[in-house]
Design a protein around this nucleic acid. Structure first.
Length: 605
RNA sequence: GGGGGUGUAGCUCAGUGGUUAGAGCGCCGGCCUGUCACGCCGGAGGUCGCGGGUUCAAGUCCCGUCAUCCUCGCCA
């Protein structure tokens, strides 16, 4: 079908073009029919332009009708200019137009941003091709594309080679659940979609590539969350002849360069990011209670155990005596919280395993109100456990927490893991409630020295905390046979604003050490050969020392846009159960396909 | 698999167990020559997610189920 092609983009029209005859192609964004006068805002990927039709034109133009419009650019009268639009000083006086495609009634108001913010998400995903017409959505696609392009440019400049690795490959059941692809030629055998290109990139190192990266699709059949999709995209990279600091230095340099350019080019409103702080895993657990701390604010957890070991408050004393921990956190300005608000905080920690939330507030010594206690030190405390504390305990707790008048101190007395879990949640809640989790701040950092393995209580065995190819720290290898939980790994995460953005490690390149690790995590000799024979063999044929990292592209774009849901930064996302409402996938297949694959459905019990 | 929320017109949402289930936007028709959230008048449009149950009477109460969002488990 022939049609008049555009000579200019809608969003480009300015006073400079007055007098020119132009053609635009696009969608009818808003139609304003005054009877004798017909105005249409035409939208293309660059913006909006108002066109005005000849008097008494009758035209079947509705929202999202696709148009080609030809006319003369003219200045609007002073009083008719629209300062809120870049093209608002001019308009196109239509001389001819074509309707290229009509639009039926829309399932949601594409051109009304205010209403679109509340539209049911499944409906938006089902009609994603409409949703994507919105400028806000196009901006997301563009930011994502620019992020990837800048990453590629940076790594290409650093001597990396981008290599594609297979999408149908071998199942590695010790990780997440695999997506499986039946193999037609040998019924009962399956490919799996990769959870990551982990083994391929290590084999590329053995292959002498030395510096590899890939913008890689990864697939994990696990239950979904706001920041997870069944298929997602990682920047995957691997380097040979490097130590941990080389990899972290490179990724920090890349991230600073890419993110700072994006912040300025896309006007994202963040301060430029600076050097990344380093935390050990142990420090992170001690100060923040988890391994992906939100470093936009302080409010570190403090250990009150030694202060309250002899406390009159029995829970504290007995917890310490029983080998447990009493740890606390400061809530700035929290002395003003109502009983109800404190109860809500207590509910939060209880949901995370804590038995309770002890607390007291530091208040103005001059405030001689009921429920407060003036201590001989001159400090006045209020509420909670204040009647059980003595002046020296309070002084020590103030010292530990940095509390000021008006602050509330909150305590969890429990096991190490429960106190971590509860206090890390509490810390984020406090950060949110006090506004310290600044949405216009990006706080990147490294968490290093993760433990090599973690005890799996259900299976009664050691599981790798990263993956089985992670190298133990040389100085800790001696503990491997005696106390595996003490062994630290050359393993690291890159975190940002409380998200794990990426993780990686120095890999094992010795077949003996690799076999030793498999033994430790309970992979039998037979299974080692069956599942990992190829990589063990490769390690006997000249494997260089190597290591790498993988970071989440989707999560980076989320962080840059301040989005809390990963679906918002994916062109065609799946819903929470992995369902794609646009394509209606997954879906049943023909009987013939079952047969061809040698498959049969097991009847439901 | 567990917990919590939501499901009523095309969209966003109201809706004390009791008349014919409403509003705004959108849609359709009419009027309208400077609109840009155009305006005015009129109209159409409903499997109250689905299936049972209680009741004289159910959008409303009960049971089940489905979808969806958040979350715990899970995510080497």
């Amino acid at each position: 079908m022939s049609f008049s092609q555009r000579t200019i983009f809608c969003g480009e029209l300015r006073a400079d073009h007055v007098g020119q005859t132009v053609t635009i192609n696009g969608w009818a964004h808003k139609v304003r029919d005054l009877g004798g006068l017909l105005f249409v805002d035409v939208r293309d990927r660059t913006g909006l332009a108002q066109v005005i039709f000849p008097e008494n034109t009758k035209a079947e133009i509705r929202s999202e009708t696709v148009l080609s419009v030809t006319g003369t650019v003219r200045m609007r009268d002073e009083k008719n200019r629209n300062a809120s639009q870049p093209t608002g000083d001019v308009e196109i006086a239509v001389s001819s137009f074509e309707i290229l495609n009509q639009s039926a009634t829309l399932p949601f108001p594409v051109s009304d941003e205010k209403q679109m913010e509340k539209v049911n998400e499944e409906l938006r995903v089902k009609h994603r091709y409409l949703d994507l017409r919105r400028p806000v959505m196009q901006k997301k696609l563009k930011l994502r594309a620019a992020s990837v392009k800048k990453i590629r440019n940076y790594l290409d400049d650093q001597g990396f080679t981008e290599v594609e690795t297979p999408i149908i490959t071998k199942s590695t059941p010790e990780g997440a659940r695999d997506y499986l692809v039946p193999y037609r030629l040998e019924p009962g055998e399956f490919y799996a979609l990769p959870q990551s290109p982990q083994q391929y990139k290590q084999l590329l190192m053995v292959g002498g590539v030395e510096r590899y990266y890939q913008i890689a699709k990864c697939f994990r059949d696990e239950s979904q969350r706001a920041d997870r999709q069944p298929e997602f995209t990682q920047l995957d990279l691997e380097m040979s002849f490097v130590r941990q600091e080389d990899i972290l230095g490179l990724i920090e340099g890349m991230t600073k360069s890419v993110v700072n350019e994006l912040i300025s080019e896309f006007d994202l409103g963040f301060e430029p990011i600076g050097d990344f702080p380093y935390l050990t895993h142990a420090e992170s657990m001690r100060l923040y209670g988890n391994d992906k701390p939100d470093l936009r604010f302080g409010l570190e957890i403090f250990d009150a155990g030694s202060v309250v070991a002899e406390s009159e408050f029995g829970v504290f004393a007995s917890t310490v005596a029983g080998g447990g921990f009493v740890r606390g956190i400061r809530y700035p300005g929290g002395a003003e919280l109502s009983r109800k608000q404190i109860t809500e905080l207590e509910d939060l920690v209880k949901q995370n395993g804590a038995k309770g939330l002890a607390n007291f507030a530091l208040v103005d010594p001059a405030m001689d109100a009921e429920g407060t206690r003036l201590l001989e030190s001159g400090k006045r405390i209020k509420g909670g456990i204040s009647k059980f504390l003595n002046a020296s305990e309070v002084d020590a707790l103030i010292e530990l927490s940095g509390a000021e008048v008006g602050d509330l101190l909150l305590f969890v007395a429990d096991s190490w893991s429960v106190s971590c879990e509860a206090l890390s949640r509490l810390r984020l809640r406090i950060g949110t409630e006090t506004g310290l989790r600044d949405p216009k701040k990006l706080a990147f950092g490294f968490v290093v020295d993760f433990p090599l393995v973690e005890w799996n209580e259900d299976e009664q065995r050691w599981d790798p905390s990263h993956h089985p190819f992670t190298s133990p720290k040389a100085e800790d290898i001696g503990h491997m046979s005696t106390d595996p939980g003490r062994v630290r790994a050359d393993c690291y995460d890159i975190v940002c604003n409380g998200y794990e953005w990426g993780s990686g490690s120095i890999r094992i390149h010795s077949p003996e050490l690799q076999a030793q690790i498999f033994d430790l995590i309970g992979v039998s000799k037979e299974a080692q050969q069956d599942r990992f024979g190829h990589i063990l063999e490769a390690f006997q044929l000249g494997a260089p020392p190597h290591g790498g990292i993988a970071t989440g592209i989707d999560r980076l774009v989320m962080l840059l846009l301040g989005e809390e849901n990963i679906r918002e930064v994916i062109a065609f996302p799946k819903m929470g159960n992995g369902y794609d409402p646009l394509m209606d996938a997954p879906s049943a297949v023909d009987e013939a396909q079952w047969t061809e694959m040698g498959l049969m459905l097991k009847p439901k019990k």
